[in-house]
Amino acid sequence: MLYHFLYPLHAYFSALNVFRYITFRAIGATLTAFLILLLVGNRFIKALQKNQIGQVVRDDGPASHFSKRGVPTMGGVLILFAVTVTTLLWVDLANSFVWIILGVTLWFGAIGAYDDYCKIKKQNSKGLSARGKIFWQILGASIAGLLIYFDPNFDGHLSFPFLKNIQPDLGTYYVLFAILVVVGASNAVNLTDGLDGLATGPTVVTSSVYLLFSYLAGHAGLAAYLQIPYVPGAGEVAIFCGALVGASLGFLWFNAYPAQIFMGDVGSLSMGAALGMVAIIIKQEMLLCIVGGVFVMEAVSVILQVGFFKMTGGKRIFLMAPFHHHFEKKGWTEPKVVVRFWIISIVLGLTALATLKLR
Protein backbone atom coordinates (compact mmCIF):
# COMPACT_ATOMS: atom_id res chain seq x y z
CA MET A 1 0.00 0.00 0.00
CA LEU A 2 2.81 2.41 0.87
CA TYR A 3 4.55 1.34 -2.32
CA HIS A 4 1.55 2.36 -4.43
CA PHE A 5 0.87 5.64 -2.57
CA LEU A 6 4.37 6.94 -1.94
CA TYR A 7 6.63 5.61 -4.71
CA PRO A 8 4.73 7.46 -7.49
CA LEU A 9 5.58 10.69 -5.65
CA HIS A 10 9.33 10.12 -5.99
CA ALA A 11 9.37 12.45 -8.99
CA TYR A 12 8.52 15.28 -6.59
CA PHE A 13 10.28 14.04 -3.46
CA SER A 14 13.44 12.10 -4.38
CA ALA A 15 13.68 10.54 -0.92
CA LEU A 16 10.58 8.46 -1.69
CA ASN A 17 12.58 6.61 -4.33
CA VAL A 18 13.64 4.20 -1.57
CA PHE A 19 10.22 2.55 -1.81
CA ARG A 20 11.21 0.97 -5.11
CA TYR A 21 13.81 -1.15 -3.33
CA ILE A 22 12.72 -4.52 -1.99
CA THR A 23 15.50 -4.46 0.60
CA PHE A 24 14.18 -1.23 2.14
CA ARG A 25 10.60 -2.47 2.20
CA ALA A 26 11.63 -5.84 3.68
CA ILE A 27 13.42 -4.06 6.52
CA GLY A 28 10.41 -1.79 6.97
CA ALA A 29 8.09 -4.79 7.12
CA THR A 30 10.27 -6.53 9.70
CA LEU A 31 10.35 -3.49 12.00
CA THR A 32 6.64 -2.73 11.53
CA ALA A 33 5.51 -6.24 12.45
CA PHE A 34 7.84 -6.26 15.44
CA LEU A 35 6.50 -2.94 16.72
CA ILE A 36 2.89 -4.02 16.26
CA LEU A 37 3.50 -7.02 18.53
CA LEU A 38 5.25 -4.92 21.16
CA LEU A 39 2.55 -2.24 21.17
CA VAL A 40 -0.44 -4.56 21.17
CA GLY A 41 0.98 -7.60 22.98
CA ASN A 42 0.19 -6.70 26.59
CA ARG A 43 -3.34 -5.53 25.80
CA PHE A 44 -4.00 -8.68 23.81
CA ILE A 45 -2.77 -10.88 26.69
CA LYS A 46 -5.03 -9.05 29.15
CA ALA A 47 -8.00 -9.49 26.80
CA LEU A 48 -7.33 -13.25 26.61
CA GLN A 49 -7.08 -13.45 30.41
CA LYS A 50 -10.32 -11.53 30.82
CA ASN A 51 -12.13 -13.95 28.50
CA GLN A 52 -10.44 -16.99 30.13
CA ILE A 53 -8.85 -18.19 26.88
CA GLY A 54 -6.16 -20.33 28.50
CA GLN A 55 -3.90 -23.20 27.58
CA VAL A 56 -5.15 -26.77 27.94
CA VAL A 57 -2.34 -29.17 28.92
CA ARG A 58 -2.28 -32.90 28.09
CA ASP A 59 -2.47 -35.11 31.19
CA ASP A 60 0.28 -37.50 30.04
CA GLY A 61 2.86 -34.76 29.44
CA PRO A 62 5.82 -33.78 31.63
CA ALA A 63 4.76 -32.77 35.15
CA SER A 64 6.51 -29.40 34.74
CA HIS A 65 3.90 -28.46 32.13
CA PHE A 66 0.95 -28.58 34.52
CA SER A 67 1.82 -25.07 35.69
CA LYS A 68 1.12 -23.83 32.15
CA ARG A 69 -2.60 -24.51 32.49
CA GLY A 70 -4.57 -21.32 32.04
CA VAL A 71 -1.76 -19.32 30.44
CA PRO A 72 -3.34 -17.26 27.61
CA THR A 73 -3.26 -19.05 24.27
CA MET A 74 -4.25 -18.34 20.64
CA GLY A 75 -1.52 -15.71 20.43
CA GLY A 76 -1.17 -16.75 16.80
CA VAL A 77 -4.12 -14.46 16.09
CA LEU A 78 -1.89 -11.51 16.94
CA ILE A 79 0.92 -12.91 14.75
CA LEU A 80 -1.48 -13.29 11.82
CA PHE A 81 -2.79 -9.77 12.34
CA ALA A 82 0.71 -8.27 12.35
CA VAL A 83 1.90 -10.30 9.35
CA THR A 84 -1.19 -9.53 7.27
CA VAL A 85 -1.33 -5.80 8.01
CA THR A 86 2.41 -5.36 7.59
CA THR A 87 2.56 -7.31 4.33
CA LEU A 88 -0.30 -5.34 2.80
CA LEU A 89 1.34 -2.13 3.98
CA TRP A 90 4.75 -2.69 2.40
CA VAL A 91 4.30 -5.10 -0.51
CA ASP A 92 3.49 -4.49 -4.17
CA LEU A 93 -0.19 -5.47 -4.13
CA ALA A 94 -0.07 -6.46 -7.80
CA ASN A 95 2.15 -9.44 -6.95
CA SER A 96 0.09 -12.66 -7.10
CA PHE A 97 2.60 -14.72 -5.13
CA VAL A 98 2.06 -12.67 -1.98
CA TRP A 99 -1.72 -13.09 -2.21
CA ILE A 100 -1.35 -16.87 -2.51
CA ILE A 101 0.94 -17.02 0.53
CA LEU A 102 -1.36 -14.80 2.57
CA GLY A 103 -4.37 -16.88 1.53
CA VAL A 104 -2.71 -20.13 2.60
CA THR A 105 -1.48 -18.58 5.86
CA LEU A 106 -4.93 -17.31 6.83
CA TRP A 107 -6.62 -20.57 5.72
CA PHE A 108 -4.40 -22.66 7.97
CA GLY A 109 -4.75 -20.06 10.68
CA ALA A 110 -8.54 -20.51 10.55
CA ILE A 111 -8.13 -24.29 10.89
CA GLY A 112 -5.88 -23.77 13.90
CA ALA A 113 -8.25 -21.23 15.44
CA TYR A 114 -11.15 -23.66 15.27
CA ASP A 115 -8.94 -26.41 16.72
CA ASP A 116 -7.96 -24.13 19.61
CA TYR A 117 -11.59 -23.16 20.15
CA CYS A 118 -12.60 -26.83 20.40
CA LYS A 119 -9.86 -27.51 22.95
CA ILE A 120 -10.83 -24.55 25.11
CA LYS A 121 -14.54 -25.33 24.91
CA LYS A 122 -14.08 -29.02 25.79
CA GLN A 123 -11.25 -28.25 28.26
CA ASN A 124 -9.06 -31.07 26.95
CA SER A 125 -6.08 -31.29 24.60
CA LYS A 126 -8.10 -32.97 21.82
CA GLY A 127 -9.59 -30.38 19.51
CA LEU A 128 -10.58 -30.80 15.88
CA SER A 129 -10.38 -34.45 14.78
CA ALA A 130 -7.22 -35.52 12.96
CA ARG A 131 -9.23 -36.44 9.86
CA GLY A 132 -11.03 -33.11 9.84
CA LYS A 133 -7.81 -31.18 10.30
CA ILE A 134 -6.00 -33.04 7.50
CA PHE A 135 -8.99 -32.70 5.14
CA TRP A 136 -9.12 -28.92 5.42
CA GLN A 137 -5.34 -28.65 5.25
CA ILE A 138 -5.18 -30.69 2.05
CA LEU A 139 -8.03 -28.69 0.55
CA GLY A 140 -6.29 -25.37 1.17
CA ALA A 141 -2.93 -26.67 -0.03
CA SER A 142 -4.54 -28.17 -3.14
CA ILE A 143 -6.03 -24.83 -4.18
CA ALA A 144 -2.68 -23.11 -3.70
CA GLY A 145 -0.85 -25.89 -5.57
CA LEU A 146 -3.20 -25.57 -8.54
CA LEU A 147 -2.78 -21.80 -8.61
CA ILE A 148 0.99 -22.27 -8.77
CA TYR A 149 0.69 -24.99 -11.40
CA PHE A 150 -1.42 -22.83 -13.73
CA ASP A 151 0.82 -19.80 -13.32
CA PRO A 152 2.33 -18.84 -16.73
CA ASN A 153 5.85 -19.05 -15.27
CA PHE A 154 5.29 -22.43 -13.59
CA ASP A 155 8.36 -24.65 -13.36
CA GLY A 156 7.93 -28.21 -12.13
CA HIS A 157 11.66 -28.86 -11.66
CA LEU A 158 13.03 -29.47 -8.17
CA SER A 159 16.22 -27.84 -6.99
CA PHE A 160 18.44 -29.84 -4.62
CA PRO A 161 20.92 -28.13 -2.26
CA PHE A 162 24.58 -28.86 -3.14
CA LEU A 163 23.48 -30.70 -6.36
CA LYS A 164 23.07 -28.15 -9.16
CA ASN A 165 22.86 -30.74 -11.95
CA ILE A 166 20.02 -32.77 -10.44
CA GLN A 167 16.69 -31.11 -11.27
CA PRO A 168 13.93 -33.67 -11.86
CA ASP A 169 10.71 -32.40 -13.47
CA LEU A 170 7.60 -33.49 -11.57
CA GLY A 171 5.17 -32.07 -14.14
CA THR A 172 1.55 -32.45 -13.00
CA TYR A 173 2.69 -34.37 -9.93
CA TYR A 174 4.09 -31.11 -8.61
CA VAL A 175 0.65 -30.26 -7.22
CA LEU A 176 0.75 -33.37 -5.01
CA PHE A 177 4.29 -32.48 -3.98
CA ALA A 178 3.18 -28.96 -3.07
CA ILE A 179 0.40 -30.37 -0.89
CA LEU A 180 2.92 -32.59 0.90
CA VAL A 181 5.28 -29.68 1.54
CA VAL A 182 2.65 -27.26 2.85
CA VAL A 183 0.73 -29.77 4.99
CA GLY A 184 3.94 -31.38 6.22
CA ALA A 185 5.55 -28.07 7.17
CA SER A 186 2.37 -26.90 8.92
CA ASN A 187 2.10 -29.99 11.10
CA ALA A 188 5.85 -30.10 11.76
CA VAL A 189 5.81 -26.60 13.25
CA ASN A 190 2.68 -27.53 15.18
CA LEU A 191 4.46 -30.53 16.74
CA THR A 192 7.46 -28.37 17.62
CA ASP A 193 5.32 -25.85 19.49
CA GLY A 194 5.49 -27.57 22.86
CA LEU A 195 7.83 -25.43 24.95
CA ASP A 196 8.16 -21.70 25.62
CA GLY A 197 9.67 -20.14 22.50
CA LEU A 198 10.67 -23.47 20.97
CA ALA A 199 8.80 -23.05 17.66
CA THR A 200 9.19 -19.28 17.51
CA GLY A 201 13.01 -19.27 17.48
CA PRO A 202 13.47 -21.64 14.52
CA THR A 203 10.68 -19.78 12.69
CA VAL A 204 12.73 -16.58 12.95
CA VAL A 205 15.80 -18.37 11.55
CA THR A 206 13.92 -20.11 8.74
CA SER A 207 12.04 -16.96 7.74
CA SER A 208 15.28 -14.96 7.72
CA VAL A 209 17.00 -17.44 5.43
CA TYR A 210 14.03 -17.53 3.08
CA LEU A 211 13.92 -13.73 3.08
CA LEU A 212 17.38 -13.74 1.52
CA PHE A 213 16.59 -16.58 -0.88
CA SER A 214 13.38 -14.84 -1.98
CA TYR A 215 15.26 -11.68 -2.83
CA LEU A 216 17.91 -13.62 -4.75
CA ALA A 217 15.34 -15.74 -6.61
CA GLY A 218 13.59 -12.60 -7.83
CA HIS A 219 16.80 -11.00 -9.10
CA ALA A 220 17.73 -12.42 -12.54
CA GLY A 221 21.40 -11.48 -12.33
CA LEU A 222 22.04 -12.78 -8.82
CA ALA A 223 20.02 -15.95 -9.43
CA ALA A 224 22.08 -16.72 -12.53
CA TYR A 225 25.36 -16.00 -10.72
CA LEU A 226 24.45 -18.21 -7.75
CA GLN A 227 22.88 -20.87 -10.01
CA ILE A 228 19.55 -20.93 -8.23
CA PRO A 229 16.13 -20.92 -9.99
CA TYR A 230 15.05 -17.48 -11.16
CA VAL A 231 11.40 -16.78 -10.31
CA PRO A 232 10.05 -13.47 -11.70
CA GLY A 233 8.22 -11.59 -8.97
CA ALA A 234 9.61 -13.69 -6.12
CA GLY A 235 11.43 -10.70 -4.69
CA GLU A 236 8.22 -9.38 -3.15
CA VAL A 237 7.99 -12.61 -1.12
CA ALA A 238 10.98 -11.31 0.85
CA ILE A 239 8.70 -8.63 2.29
CA PHE A 240 6.28 -11.26 3.57
CA CYS A 241 9.23 -13.14 5.08
CA GLY A 242 10.36 -9.92 6.75
CA ALA A 243 6.90 -9.46 8.25
CA LEU A 244 7.02 -13.04 9.56
CA VAL A 245 10.47 -12.47 11.07
CA GLY A 246 9.34 -9.27 12.80
CA ALA A 247 6.08 -10.75 14.08
CA SER A 248 7.88 -13.84 15.38
CA LEU A 249 10.51 -11.76 17.18
CA GLY A 250 7.80 -9.59 18.69
CA PHE A 251 5.85 -12.63 19.81
CA LEU A 252 9.01 -14.16 21.28
CA TRP A 253 9.22 -11.10 23.55
CA PHE A 254 6.14 -12.45 25.35
CA ASN A 255 6.58 -16.14 24.55
CA ALA A 256 10.09 -16.53 26.01
CA TYR A 257 10.39 -18.59 29.21
CA PRO A 258 8.35 -18.27 31.32
CA ALA A 259 5.78 -17.63 28.61
CA GLN A 260 3.09 -14.99 29.12
CA ILE A 261 1.22 -16.30 26.08
CA PHE A 262 1.21 -19.29 23.71
CA MET A 263 0.60 -19.10 19.98
CA GLY A 264 -1.76 -22.09 19.86
CA ASP A 265 -2.54 -24.04 16.71
CA VAL A 266 -3.76 -20.85 15.06
CA GLY A 267 -0.15 -19.70 15.11
CA SER A 268 1.84 -22.88 14.58
CA LEU A 269 -0.28 -24.31 11.74
CA SER A 270 -0.34 -21.01 9.87
CA MET A 271 3.37 -20.24 10.25
CA GLY A 272 4.35 -23.71 9.10
CA ALA A 273 2.08 -23.47 6.07
CA ALA A 274 3.50 -20.03 5.27
CA LEU A 275 7.06 -21.35 5.29
CA GLY A 276 6.07 -24.30 3.11
CA MET A 277 4.34 -22.00 0.61
CA VAL A 278 7.33 -19.65 0.47
CA ALA A 279 9.62 -22.61 -0.21
CA ILE A 280 7.41 -23.72 -3.09
CA ILE A 281 7.12 -20.31 -4.73
CA ILE A 282 10.85 -19.55 -4.71
CA LYS A 283 11.71 -23.11 -5.82
CA GLN A 284 13.67 -23.97 -2.66
CA GLU A 285 11.41 -26.75 -1.42
CA MET A 286 14.16 -29.22 -0.53
CA LEU A 287 16.10 -26.53 1.33
CA LEU A 288 13.30 -26.56 3.89
CA CYS A 289 14.59 -29.93 5.10
CA ILE A 290 17.85 -28.21 6.06
CA VAL A 291 16.88 -24.77 7.32
CA GLY A 292 13.77 -26.19 8.98
CA GLY A 293 15.65 -29.20 10.29
CA VAL A 294 14.38 -28.73 13.84
CA PHE A 295 10.79 -28.98 12.58
CA VAL A 296 11.67 -32.04 10.49
CA MET A 297 13.38 -33.69 13.45
CA GLU A 298 10.32 -33.18 15.64
CA ALA A 299 7.93 -34.57 13.03
CA VAL A 300 10.13 -37.58 12.27
CA SER A 301 10.43 -38.38 15.98
CA VAL A 302 6.63 -38.66 16.22
CA ILE A 303 6.41 -40.82 13.08
CA LEU A 304 9.14 -43.15 14.35
CA GLN A 305 7.65 -43.34 17.84
CA VAL A 306 4.14 -44.17 16.62
CA GLY A 307 5.37 -46.64 14.00
CA PHE A 308 7.72 -48.44 16.38
CA PHE A 309 5.03 -48.53 19.08
CA LYS A 310 2.58 -50.26 16.74
CA MET A 311 5.15 -52.66 15.26
CA THR A 312 6.52 -53.83 18.61
CA GLY A 313 3.28 -53.89 20.56
CA GLY A 314 4.02 -51.04 22.94
CA LYS A 315 7.79 -50.43 22.92
CA ARG A 316 9.18 -46.93 22.42
CA ILE A 317 12.25 -45.38 20.83
CA PHE A 318 12.07 -42.15 22.81
CA LEU A 319 10.97 -41.58 26.38
CA MET A 320 8.31 -39.32 24.89
CA ALA A 321 7.55 -37.73 21.52
CA PRO A 322 7.81 -35.12 20.06
CA PHE A 323 11.57 -35.16 20.48
CA HIS A 324 11.84 -32.17 22.84
CA HIS A 325 9.84 -34.03 25.51
CA HIS A 326 12.42 -36.85 25.40
CA PHE A 327 15.06 -34.49 26.77
CA GLU A 328 12.69 -33.13 29.39
CA LYS A 329 12.13 -36.70 30.57
CA LYS A 330 15.92 -37.12 30.77
CA GLY A 331 16.08 -34.20 33.21
CA TRP A 332 16.92 -31.23 30.99
CA THR A 333 15.28 -27.99 32.09
CA GLU A 334 12.90 -26.34 29.64
CA PRO A 335 15.13 -23.31 28.91
CA LYS A 336 18.09 -25.61 28.19
CA VAL A 337 16.09 -27.66 25.68
CA VAL A 338 14.79 -24.52 23.96
CA VAL A 339 18.12 -22.69 23.70
CA ARG A 340 19.93 -25.78 22.43
CA PHE A 341 17.26 -26.30 19.78
CA TRP A 342 17.70 -22.63 18.81
CA ILE A 343 21.44 -23.20 18.46
CA ILE A 344 20.80 -26.19 16.20
CA SER A 345 18.41 -24.08 14.13
CA ILE A 346 21.00 -21.32 13.67
CA VAL A 347 23.63 -23.85 12.59
CA LEU A 348 21.17 -25.34 10.10
CA GLY A 349 20.35 -21.85 8.85
CA LEU A 350 24.03 -21.16 8.20
CA THR A 351 24.31 -24.51 6.44
CA ALA A 352 21.39 -23.52 4.20
CA LEU A 353 23.16 -20.27 3.33
CA ALA A 354 26.30 -22.22 2.46
CA THR A 355 24.38 -23.98 -0.33
CA LEU A 356 24.48 -20.70 -2.27
CA LYS A 357 28.19 -21.20 -2.96
CA LEU A 358 28.66 -24.95 -2.48
CA ARG A 359 26.87 -26.17 -5.57
Rank of each mutant, 00 (worst) to 15 (best):
F5L: 14
L6N: 05
Y7K: 07
L9D: 02
Y12V: 15
F13G: 11
F13H: 06
A15M: 09
N17G: 14
V18H: 01
V18I: 15
R20L: 06
R20D: 14
G28D: 06
T30W: 01
T30Q: 07
T32R: 02
L35Y: 02
L37I: 13
G41W: 02
N42A: 10
N42S: 11
R43Y: 06
F44A: 12
G54R: 03
Q55R: 03
D59C: 04
D59N: 09
F66S: 15
K68G: 10
T73Y: 01
M74F: 00
V77L: 15
V77P: 01
L78M: 10
L78V: 12
A82M: 01
V83D: 09
V83S: 07
T84G: 09
T86K: 02
T87I: 10
D92T: 12
F97I: 10
F97Q: 07
V98N: 08
L102D: 08
G109Q: 03
G109Y: 01
D116F: 00
D116G: 06
K119M: 07
K122T: 15
K122V: 05
Q123P: 03
N124W: 01
N124T: 05
K126G: 11
W136T: 15
G140Q: 03
G156S: 12
H157R: 13
L158S: 11
S159W: 08
F162P: 14
F162N: 13
Q167P: 03
D169S: 11
I179A: 13
A185E: 02
V189S: 06
N190M: 13
G194K: 04
P202I: 12
T203Y: 00
A220I: 10
G221L: 09
Y225R: 13
I228Y: 01
V231F: 01
E236A: 12
E236M: 08
F240W: 06
F240S: 14
G242D: 09
L244N: 06
S248C: 07
S248N: 09
L249W: 06
G250C: 13
G250R: 06
F251Q: 13
N255F: 09
N255D: 11
A259Y: 01
Q260R: 13
M263F: 01
M263I: 09
S270W: 00
G272N: 13
G272E: 07
A273C: 11
A274D: 05
A274P: 02
A279C: 12
I280H: 10
I282T: 13
L287C: 08
L287V: 08
V294D: 14
F295R: 06
E298I: 04
I303M: 15
Q305D: 12
Q305S: 12
V306R: 04
G307W: 01
F308K: 05
M311E: 05
K315M: 09
A321F: 04
A321L: 11
P322S: 07
H326G: 13
H326T: 08
E328S: 05
K330D: 03
P335A: 12
K336R: 13
I343A: 15
V347M: 06
G349D: 03
L350Q: 08
A352G: 05
L353H: 00
L353Q: 01
T355P: 02
L358A: 10
